[in-house]
Computed example of a mutant assay.
Amino acid sequence: MARLTNDFVFLILSIVEEIPEGKVATYGQIAELAGFERNARLVGKVLSRADFYGKYPCHRVVNSKGECAKHWPAQKNLLKAEAVRFTSIGSVDLKNHRWEPE
């Protein structure tokens, strides 16, 4: 189980910083890349406080269904500005926009 330490915060933010424009990752995907597969909620908590650590492209992280954060209505517009497409039900088209790091 991960703990919300500065090391964990900066690990998560360093991964988020790698997501290219026009792509998205899920909270679970970020947790897995960090080596903490079962900590998607903790990733969300880190991202909700990311402004305290600098400027990171947190808008490129969505839930496992491709849904934007309910408390952040600007997220969808930020993604649309990067040419991210949405499905007819309003979720990110993960098939075409999910980030696959190498």
Rank of each mutant, 00 (worst) to 15 (best):
Y56K: 14
S64H: 13
G66N: 13
F8Q: 08
A40H: 00
A74C: 08
P20Y: 06
N63Q: 09
K76A: 06
K45H: 01
L13M: 04
K23W: 07
L94S: 00
G66Q: 10
A31W: 09
P73R: 12
L94Q: 00
K76C: 00
F52L: 11
T26H: 04
V43S: 00
S64I: 14
F8H: 11
R38P: 00
F8V: 11
F52D: 06
E17F: 12
A25M: 04
K23T: 11
G22V: 08
G90W: 04
G54Y: 05
D93W: 08
R41D: 07
A69D: 02
S91E: 10
Q75M: 03
T5W: 12
P20H: 11
A31V: 07
V24F: 14
R85I: 05
S14C: 09
A81S: 15
R41W: 07
G90P: 02
C68A: 08
R98K: 13
K70V: 04
E82Y: 02
K55I: 11
A81H: 13
I12A: 15
R98A: 09
G22Y: 12
F86M: 09
Y53A: 07
Q29E: 14
H97C: 07
Y56R: 10
Y56F: 15
R49W: 01
K55L: 07
R41Y: 02
Q29C: 05
F36V: 08
H59L: 04
L47S: 03
A25T: 05
G54K: 02
E18D: 14
I19L: 10
F52N: 06
N6A: 12
R3P: 02
N96K: 05
R49G: 09
A2M: 13
F8G: 08
W72P: 03
E67V: 00
P20C: 12
A69F: 01
G22W: 14
N6C: 00
E82D: 02
T26V: 00
R3G: 14
I15W: 09
H71I: 00
K45F: 01
H59A: 03
G66M: 06
L4C: 08
E32P: 04
G22M: 12
V92W: 13
R85N: 15
F52H: 07
C68P: 05
V9R: 15
A2Y: 07
D93A: 11
A31M: 08
M1A: 12
E17S: 11
Y27Q: 07
V61D: 03
W99M: 03
N39K: 06
L42T: 10
V16I: 11
R38D: 06
L79Y: 15
W72D: 11
W72C: 05
T5M: 11
A83D: 15
T87Y: 08
Y53T: 01
N96E: 01
R85D: 15
F86P: 14
S91L: 05
A50H: 13
L42E: 05
N96S: 04
V46W: 07
T5F: 12
E67M: 11
N77G: 07
H59C: 02
V16R: 13
K76I: 06
G22A: 10
E21S: 12
F52E: 11
Y56Q: 13
N77P: 00
E37K: 15
A50F: 10
R60S: 07
N96F: 00
L33Q: 08
A31F: 10
L33H: 06
A69E: 03
H97R: 05
L78R: 15
G44F: 04
E21R: 13
